[in-house]
């Protein structure tokens, strides 16, 4: 028996807005990569469409519908309240078509979101040194680039807003390692926070919801993340010592909390450890609402599917608010 009292999308929005909760705690994952195991299909992000433009439109449409169907099937089977669309190819035109298709096939059942970050995250290994040097040698240039990134993202969001159909953005620039942010809180306040504030504000002004994701230990910059006023913080990474109980105590009145189920334990821990992590997140996240059940990253390639199904069983049994 499904514990939802209304449509998945509405439950999700109620949690984002920290309204009084009812029914089952909402749930979603940033990505569910195990589509081959679950549905016998390659995840859209793992498909190579380098001949996209060469295809007949009829064939492109078949691919679009296949991907849209897979996003919806994933949400249905694992009872997600939201779908994080990963359009492939990722052009604006294909993104808008994907929004339309998912709405056509599933109506307003699910909350739809897209990638929307435009702030500096941890550069990849090859670029990390260069970025560190730029911070020291060309601070003004880094700030100009940060502003340009935000301006571009806002223009894209305006086009999506005019088109309609999308509910929000997930901002997925990772800022933190397990032991803390990739730049000092002081540099973060100079090179990231002002731009994150602008970005979230612009998205909110257009009526979008905003979920800010980052892995790692966010505690040294948590206040700055909250200063940007996202609707939710995602990941709350226990591998970075982020604790759901502490987050709830410190920030539960300001922002919706998503995640905290230890992906490391789901992957390499015992079943009991993974279960305990899910129960801990539920126990400390649920009180008063403003909480969405999720792992601390995503259902990534290599994670045992049965572990995910096991924590979903716990969610179904224990993630219900009193009537």
């Amino acid at each position: 028996m499904d514990g939802r009292v209304s449509a998945p999308r509405e439950d999700f929005i109620r949690a984002l807005e920290r309204q009084p909760p009812a029914g089952r705690v909402p749930h979603f994952e940033l990505v569910f990569f195990l589509t081959m195991q679950a549905f016998g299909k390659v995840h859209p992000s793992h498909r190579s469409y380098h001949q996209w433009d060469q295809m007949e439109e009829k064939e492109r449409e078949l691919h679009r519908r296949d991907m849209a169907g897979l996003f919806i099937d994933t949400a249905r089977r694992f009872e997600h309240n939201a779908i994080f669309l990963h359009p492939n190819p990722g052009t604006l035109a294909e993104t808008l078509r994907m929004i339309d298709l998912v709405r056509e096939l599933s109506g307003d059942t699910y909350f739809l979101m897209l990638h929307g970050d435009a702030t500096f995250g941890i550069p990849n290994g090859a670029q990390l040194e260069a970025f560190a040097y730029r911070l020291a040698d060309d601070a003004d240039g880094v700030k100009r680039e940060a502003q340009q990134m935000v301006d571009n993202a806002v223009r894209r969001a305006e086009a999506i807003s005019q088109h309609g159909g999308l509910d929000g953005f997930a901002l997925c620039s990772d800022y933190c390692f397990n032991d803390g942010p990739f730049i000092s809180p002081g540099q973060f306040s100079e090179f990231v926070t002002p731009y994150l504030v602008q970005l979230v504000s612009a998205y909110r002004d257009m009526g979008f919801y905003v979920i800010k994701h980052t892995d790692g230990n966010i505690m040294p910059i948590a206040d700055q993340l909250l200063e940007a006023n996202p609707h939710a913080l995602h990941s709350l990474d226990p591998q970075g010592d982020v604790d759901m109980a502490e987050m709830k105590r410190l920030y539960g009145e300001q922002v919706c909390l998503i995640g905290n189920i230890n992906c490391g334990l789901m992957d390499t821990g015992t079943v009991e450890e993974a279960e305990a992590s899910a129960r801990y997140a539920l126990r400390h996240g649920m009180p008063g609402g403003g909480y969405i059940f999720s792992t601390s990253n995503c259902i990534y390639t290599g994670m045992p599917l049965e572990r995910y199904e096991r924590i979903l069983d716990i969610w179904r049994a224990e993630g219900n608010y009193a009537a």
Binding site: L128, A132, L135, A136, P181, I183, Q187, P220
Partner: peptide, 14 residues
């Protein structure tokens, strides 16, 4: 001691 972060470490190494 969280006084230096990765960029400070990298420019020292440079």
């Amino acid at each position: 001691a969280n006084v230096f972060y990765v960029p400070e470490l990298l420019i020292a190494a440079r």
